[in-house]
Simulated scan of single mutants.
Amino acid sequence: MTLDEFRGSVTQPAPPTPLPKPLEALWWDAKGDWNRAHEAAQAGEDADSAWVHAYLHRKEGDLSNAAYWYRRAGRAPPATSLPDEWTSIARDVLA
């Protein structure tokens, strides 16, 4: 799946399957459902899921919790916008 295809799938009522948990979380986030996005990120146990988890807490303004999850992901908190970070995560996970 390409990044454009992934973005386009957000117009559907449910995420495409199968999707890795980090992408499922980003999909729900793009739909505006933070809670479902958070549940999907928590269900993943890999570094990409931790990265999405960090992004979601950054988005909600819980920067201390986000910092914890960035450390778990092995990443520094970004200096980019939230939409740019969403795109970076999606691109990396899809690659």
Rank of each mutant, 00 (worst) to 15 (best):
H53Q: 06
T17V: 14
A66S: 11
D46P: 02
A50V: 07
A47V: 11
W51V: 00
V93T: 14
A50D: 12
R72F: 00
A30C: 06
A95C: 02
G32D: 10
S64P: 03
G44I: 12
K21R: 15
L63F: 12
G8N: 13
A73Y: 03
L63W: 04
G61A: 04
E60T: 13
D62C: 07
P13Y: 08
Q42G: 04
E24F: 11
R58A: 12
P18Y: 02
A30D: 12
A76W: 02
G61C: 03
D84A: 14
D33E: 14
A37N: 10
R72L: 06
F6L: 05
A79E: 15
K59N: 13
L56I: 11
H53T: 05
A73Q: 03
F6H: 05
T17Q: 14
L23D: 10
H57S: 02
L23S: 09
E5F: 01
N35M: 14
V52D: 06
V10S: 04
D84N: 12
P77E: 15
R72M: 08
A54D: 00
A41Q: 09
L19Q: 04
P77T: 09
L94Q: 07
V10W: 04
R72Y: 01
D48H: 12
W86D: 08
P15V: 01
T87L: 03
L23K: 12
G74F: 09
E85Y: 00
P22H: 10
P20D: 02
A90W: 11
A50W: 02
W69E: 06
A90E: 08
E45N: 15
T80N: 04
A41P: 09
E60D: 11
S81H: 02
A73F: 06
R72V: 10
L23N: 09
A50P: 01
F6D: 01
N65H: 09
W34Y: 15
P18R: 05
T11C: 05
A40D: 03
D33P: 03
R58M: 09
A95S: 13
D62P: 02
Y68T: 03
A40Q: 10
S81K: 01
I89P: 09
D33V: 13
A50S: 15
S64H: 12
H53F: 04
E85T: 00
L19V: 05
R36L: 15
L23H: 13
T11D: 12
S81Q: 00
P16E: 07
G44P: 06
P15D: 10
H57L: 01
N35I: 15
P77R: 05
A40L: 04
L26E: 02
P77C: 03
A50Y: 12
L82E: 04
T17D: 11
S49T: 01
D33M: 06
